[in-house]
Design a protein around this nucleic acid. Structure first.
Lengths: 150, 150
DNA sequence: TATTGTTATACTCTATAACTATA
DNA sequence: TATAGTTATAGAGTATAACAATA
């Protein structure tokens, strides 16, 4: 029972249990980051920047390998690559040794877009983790990496 | 240039830059957790367990407050609560002092489902963070909490 | 005017199955 | 048979706008 003039949930609900769950905090932290990225700038979506960065570092990579390296399933890679191709940031070239493969390469415009995307993401990460020291950012990176299955 | 017999991306693509980004790791870690939860057990979805836990700890809470406390927008709360009501885990009671409000309460079945859901989530969290010490889990919790906007 | 809850809607993300063309 | 890429599709998650009832 609570004081009749003070409803039980008037100030702030009790969220003790759920606030202790790592999975829940991961979802909330991801949402915080997505909101920050959407709020600032008009750069490429993070997933497209991540694809550009892997294609740039691995010229000629195939779409299946690209998806595997980023944790994106093959059927979902196709429209994302099509988006990059439509923006003329990436070229698909049919492999001469295996006609099934499409080898991906960044165009000059793609290289430029990647540089801008990286800057946007790095500034965004700095904003969201502004409350953390460099050492804490490093620890967070290590702990998250050890959760991600490989 | 690479040895002609060894394609540049034969073994593992270079993902140096993207692997260093916290936002990317948050997405991968969330995906790892979702896959683990789906793989084991057939318990309630985590979002429904989180709602049950907040309703249980705050009997009479309204849907808007429930959504705010969990970072879920009001239009998205309605079908989730309807799901819980349909399973007879939650009751909606019209407030006697403010006819706009629907006060939420767990049913006895809801209390039982919450206990099972908590067990499922806690076992799931233990599996996913098995590579972390208790101290590391605590640090991860602290760092994630400081990223989530309040 | 503001708030609670609802409906409609749309876009993204993720997942499975099935197809084609090549190997 | 197996693989690379594609298409279709379905389920979640998330976002805005607009409405009815009530304050």
């Amino acid at each position: 029972m609570t004081d009749a003039t003070t409803p039980p949930t008037a100030i702030r609900p009790d969220t003790t249990w759920i606030d202790a769950q790592i999975g829940y905090l991961l979802r909330r932290a991801s949402a915080t980051m997505a909101a920050d990225y959407a709020k600032h700038g008009d750069a490429l979506r993070p997933v497209l920047v991540s694809m550009l960065s892997v294609i740039d570092a691995n010229p000629g990579i195939g779409q299946t390998e690209l998806g595997t390296s980023l944790g994106i399933q093959r059927p979902n890679v196709a429209p994302l690559v099509a988006d990059l191709v439509g923006r003329e940031l990436v070229e698909r070239r049919r492999s001469t040794t295996d006609a099934r493969r499409l080898e991906l390469h960044c165009t000059p415009r793609g290289i430029e877009a990647l540089a801008r995307g990286r800057s946007a993401i790095e500034a965004h990460e700095a904003r969201v983790t502004a409350a953390l020291s460099d050492a804490e950012r490093s620890v967070l990176h290590d702990l998250l990496t050890r959760i991600v299955e490989r």
